[in-house]
Design a binder for these strands. Structure first.
Lengths: 327, 327
DNA sequence: CTGAAAGCGCTAACAA
DNA sequence: TTGTTAGCGCTTTCAG
């Protein structure tokens, strides 16, 4: 039923190794023979069996991608971009959602690690020890985790945040609120205070909360109570909650309060008003992580040192920010 | 480096076949032996090599999922649910995004089909002929496509739409607009006219357009021009465009116009006002499609007939619908 | 209940 | 440049 290398060999009147070489090292085959083999292969509809290939030791040709929550709108564009990138490099992507549960993540990694040549772990819930140990068994790249000796893609919000601070200052804002909803190990709060201070803005941090819509809903009256005229939310989703509740409270955006999100997800561009937000390029994230991983896979033997690359951010001004109200 | 069945056999003092059986048919092994083998396996950190397994003919243990666009917020919850379901059945899911391009889809299927035991094809762009031919080579389930002799999960909007019509009628609406943005083969328009007519509502269809936010923006003034007091949009994204532009035009929702979306994506619950929409359960979709596929895979030899299952819908009333304005 | 042995489809020495 | 052949790790008859 399924066409094997042997049948192609027979049809082309050559040996199996020639067929194998025709696909893996075409330059080692006489052009004429190559042509015959390729023709026979297409005629029969031959396609190499990846299981056999990887059993033989050639790698699986697939990259694993471990994601905390695919329903988080931040991830789909990244996954999409990683697939596109990987495909161009001849890889397939095996994506798994772990629901931000460590147990799930451990199980998933176990079941997936034999099917892939390497793993990209997004915001892994695993301990540093475990991650380092995993890195010993299979090439990995972590994103948004800082583990010594493990390759890493780091998201830097610094640029976007300082642009946001600048943007607000230029609009005459003086008092701002930051809604924090990070897991401690991923804290976004650090650079924020510095940037806002540098711009001469008073910043009150509230939280930490869970990064959900309801967090924004909850935070909205607090913003008003603080007499702040601008908010930086942990992410777009939280910012949308703020928008929603501010509307309910009769406060206008950006008339009374300016709102800024983080991530530039689909949500930001389709909200009313559209949301000013800090964008982290999904394409760049994808390209960098795939690049780092394939590098690690390729250079497996000549132990390439772990690398850290940083992916920047920038402000995307939209309609949710404007001049501070006169008092 | 990687531990094989042979090492476990040695450690447990049994033959490789016993180890194999310990994992694939534990009841054929004497309990005591089984225990010894399992202990040795855990001690060594043994895990079966899936490549070897599938080479031997045991199937790959993975299900393929072909999606037109993972960035469409309708899909992530479905993918998530399919993964969860598949995992419980001992399968891994290999998801691939095809960008709604037929060429991409063909290429993707080619590269993926040898790595999976079966395929779920969402709103496939492939021709009926091709799909039927594919079904001859590998078990497949199509969703939102109607191909004779191929198992199918069909989304029925009928219930949700008639509830929507009822909902609007009860609120005193009389003139409605339907914004159509379907690919012809997936047309959502059919049952809509009937349901609205049955509820005694005048329905004007505009379109077809592309299913994008801008479509809603474009449609908003048309709704007003038609003197309609309610809109049913092709999906939530389009509905959000309507909401956005209606706000710009100074029309209140639901004061002047009621808006209904379709899909109940994240967008619907976080918009302002929150969006009344027709929900299609991602979990049910996932369960049904995985079920149909595993059924087809399991019963591969005793050729199970193609099956069609229908997944229903229902209205989720939120804040974007309300009483029709008095004239 | 357990073991020996034959291959699944492919690649990579090694020979020719 | 091409062919022969030995496995990769596993499952599965077939004997015991």
């Amino acid at each position: 039923m399924t066409v094997t290398i042997r049948e192609v060999a027979e049809a082309a009147g050559v040996s199996v190794s020639t067929v194998s070489r025709a696909f893996t090292a075409p330059d080692q085959v006489k052009p004429l023979t190559l042509k015959r083999v390729l023709e026979a292969a297409t005629a029969l509809g031959y396609a190499a069996n990846p299981a056999a290939r990887s059993l033989r030791g050639g790698g699986t040709g697939t990259l694993g991608l471990i994601i905390p929550d695919i329903a988080n709108p931040f991830f789909p564009p990244i996954i999409k971009a990683m697939q596109a990138r990987a495909r161009r490099l001849g890889y397939t992507v095996l994506m798994a959602d772990c629901d931000e549960q460590e147990a799930d993540e451990i199980e998933t990694i176990a079941s997936v690690s034999k099917r892939v040549d390497g793993l990209v772990l997004w915001a892994s819930t695993l301990s540093e020890t475990r991650l380092r140990e995993l890195a010993g068994r299979i090439p990995i790249v972590v994103v948004n985790r800082d583990v010594p000796e493990v390759s890493e893609v780091r998201i830097s919000l610094a640029a976007g945040i300082s642009q946001a601070a600048e943007h607000l200052r230029a609009y005459g804002h003086r008092k701002c609120v930051f809604i924090n909803a990070s897991r401690p190990e991923l804290a976004r709060g650090k650079s924020i205070h510095d940037s806002f201070e540098a711009a001469g803005l008073a910043l009150t941090e509230i939280g930490p909360y869970e990064p959900r819509f309801e967090t924004g809903v909850h935070a909205a009256p607090l913003i008003l109570a603080h007499n702040a005229t601008a908010v930086l939310a942990h992410n777009d989703l939280v910012a949308l909650g703020v928008l929603h509740q501010l509307a309910n409270l009769g406060a206008s955006v950006p008339g009374d309060v300016s709102v800024i999100g983080i991530d530039d997800t689909l949500l930001a561009s389709v909200s009313t008003p559209s949301l000013t937000t800090i964008r982290i390029s999904p394409d760049e994230l994808a390209v960098r992580s795939v690049e780092l991983l394939t590098e690690a896979i390729t250079g497996r033997d000549d132990d390439v040192p772990a690398r850290v690359v940083e992916v920047g951010s920038r402000l995307v001004p939209r309609a949710s920010t404007g001049p501070a109200p006169n008092r």
